[in-house]
Nucleic acid binder design. Structure first.
Length: 109
DNA sequence: TGGTTGACTAAGT
DNA sequence: CACTTAGCCAACC
């Protein structure tokens, strides 16, 4: 199987390792991939993750805001998935974000 | 090849 | 608090 060495595939592999009930940020994934300034690329990769088996709903911005929810089928789907995993979301923001935060730099190093 | 794009982030107004 | 500017960089056309 030809694995695309593209940036997207790397993002997908990290995203797939996010444990249930945990979330991370675009910047954290980017930093893990060696592009601290590449948070936007991660978000863009998520945009293309539609066909991939990637839990994009576990990736939020640095403040714990569900900035990407507008890209899901429904604006409530992303929050629904997170709450289904035990992550409380209020007003598009993850509550107790620090507690749910999963850092690939610490977990995958 | 080069300009446009974007689910980010930080700092400024 | 809402909006703007600026930096960042791979993928896309």
């Amino acid at each position: 199987m030809l694995k695309e060495d593209s940036f997207f595939e790397r993002v997908y592999e990290v995203a797939r390792q996010i444990p249930e009930g945990k979330v991370t940020s675009y910047g954290a994934i980017a930093a893990y991939l060696g592009m601290a300034k590449g948070a936007r690329m991660v978000g863009w990769a998520m945009n293309a993750s539609g066909a991939a088996n990637v839990p994009a709903h576990r990736v939020v911005n640095k403040k714990g805001l569900l900035t990407g929810k507008h890209h899901f089928e429904g604006v409530n789907l992303m929050q629904q998935l997170l709450e289904n995993e035990g992550v409380k979301v209020v007003d598009n923001q993850i509550q107790n974000f620090a507690k749910y935060f999963w850092d690939p730099l610490e977990s995958l190093k």
